Simulated scan of single mutants.
Amino acid sequence: MNFNKTIMVVSVALAGFIFLGCQGGYSENEIGLRKSTLLNENVKVSAFDYNGKAAGESVLIDRAFENAPPMISHSVEDMLPITKENNSCTSCHLPEVAEAVKATPMPKSHFYDFRKKKDLKEQMDETRFNCVICHTTQVNAAPLVVNKFEPDFRQENGSTKSNLIDIVNEGVN
């Protein structure tokens, strides 16, 4: 195809997209899974039945794959927003407290600065304060799409424990 024909085909396709895009389209409430405005984050999402149980009362869901962040097994409704100054998660999940309250302890990787390659000992990495970036609340819902993935854990307790800090450089020369 010569250059002029290519320009003409691209121009017609672009005009078609513009024309179709101006035919009403979708409102902000029709986009995404939550079916509510995308312009306001203060909306309660009621599409799913979060278990809402108190900490320690629910059954833990195994990790989806090796070293996947574990899911939050309890309600976090009164714990949000999580900030550096206000993080309720650490009151139970810091390693020195977790065993006593029967909570999952934060792994060693949360006390390591990967950018500076420095062990922070008992000081949590400042980039790890917002727990819900990686961890999500367990929900009673059917999958939205079929998933045939089967995890293959290399260690016996891989579905419940993380060894990321020990293997993070595995295979790196």
Rank of each mutant, 00 (worst) to 15 (best):
L38T: 12
L144Q: 09
N169T: 02
A64S: 10
D125G: 07
T83D: 02
H93D: 02
R154Y: 07
R34F: 11
G24S: 05
G25N: 09
P69N: 04
T83P: 04
L33G: 15
H110E: 14
E150S: 11
G32E: 08
V76I: 15
Q23S: 15
S109A: 12
S46P: 00
T37R: 02
E170D: 15
I82Y: 03
D125A: 15
C92G: 02
F17N: 12
K35V: 06
I61K: 14
H135G: 10
S91H: 05
A55C: 04
L39N: 14
N173F: 10
K116W: 01
S36V: 10
S109F: 04
N29V: 10
I61Q: 12
V172S: 06
F3E: 11
N87E: 03
P105I: 03
K102P: 00
E170M: 14
I31A: 09
C92V: 01
V145I: 13
N169G: 07
V9K: 09
G56I: 07
N86L: 01
S73N: 12
K118L: 11
S75C: 09
V76C: 13
Y50H: 10
D49R: 12
H93L: 03
F48S: 06
D152S: 12
V59T: 14
T37P: 04
P105L: 03
T37I: 03
P95G: 07
S58H: 11
D113F: 08
E77C: 00
P151L: 08
D152T: 11
M124Y: 07
I133F: 04
V168H: 12
V172Y: 08
S46L: 13
I72M: 07
P95E: 05
G24K: 06
P107I: 05
K35S: 13
A68V: 05
S75F: 03
N29A: 11
N51I: 14
T6F: 14
S91D: 10
A141D: 01
A13R: 01
S88V: 05
S159Q: 09
P70E: 04
N87S: 05
A13W: 02
Q123N: 10
E28Q: 11
C134P: 04
K44N: 12
K84S: 08
G52I: 08
M1E: 08
S73C: 03
K116L: 12
F153K: 05
K5I: 10
M8R: 13
L94K: 14
F153N: 04
G24I: 04
K53L: 15
K102Y: 01
N86S: 08
M79E: 12
I7L: 15
L80I: 11
R128E: 15
A103C: 00
V76S: 08
E28G: 01
N86W: 00
K84D: 05
T136K: 15
L38G: 15
N86T: 06
H110N: 15
M8S: 13
V145T: 10
N51Y: 09
N86M: 01
N40E: 06
V12C: 12
P151Q: 09
I61C: 05
V139N: 04
M79V: 00
Q23D: 11
V146N: 07
V9A: 13
G16I: 04
S11V: 02
V145N: 08
T104K: 08
K116P: 01
P151V: 08
H93C: 00
K148P: 00
Q155M: 13
R115A: 13
L39C: 10
